[in-house]
Amino acid sequence: MQTIDLEKTGLRETNKMLHAQAANTNQTAWEIVNAKGAHAIACGLDAPIEVTVKGSTGYYCAGMNQQATINIHGSAGPGTAENMMSGKVVVEGDASQYAGATGHGGLLVIKGNASSRCGISMKGINIVVHGNIGHMSAFMAQSGNLVVLGDAGDALGDSCYEARLFVRGMVKSLGADCEKKEMRPEHLEILRALLAEAGADAKPEEFTRYGSARNLYNFDVDNASAY
């Protein structure tokens, strides 16, 4: 295990060390201590390594992650795992706004709650939130799966495209063009796998699926009031 004291080493040197790891590196276990809410920790990684951040992180921790597994032992600031491509990011605490924004792949697990705009413009990422999520989550979500064990705030899935949204609890309101969908066997399968991978204690059957009604896919003047 390689331990980096972020305060002593500084952000640039820390990220540089992590970026220097090749696909076949032997140094696969890393720990970052004294995170103290710093921004852009462990962003842009591209190697199959596991990084554990002790403490809470600022903006964009694990941004654009590829391959790596990043554990945040604390709460995470805005834009955590934004535009993630692959790999896994686990937040033990809560996550601020825009968690997993525009992510293309990989799995983001939030053990606590996620704030507003979780999964905004998601493009293939899978996100599992053990707690609740805030308003405008999955806004313009394009693809991937958002799984919420708790409740969802206002305007869930507003203007979403092909992303699948699964919520176990209450949904305060659905956004424009988002509707309740039928849960088919393939969806239960997807959910089962994601819940297992995210270590979530819930049954697929307890969830409701939401997604795009596809009424706003092509402009129609009769829908003008929805825009």
Binding site: L11, R12, N15, K16, H19, H39, A40, C43, G44, G58, Y59, Y60, G63, M64, P78, G79
Partner: peptide
């Protein structure tokens, strides 16, 4: 926020 976004992009691209 923009300042932090620029920081992130710089960190990603070294």
């Amino acid at each position: 926020d923009l300042e932090i976004k620029i920081l992130e992009l710089r960190e990603i691209t070294g």
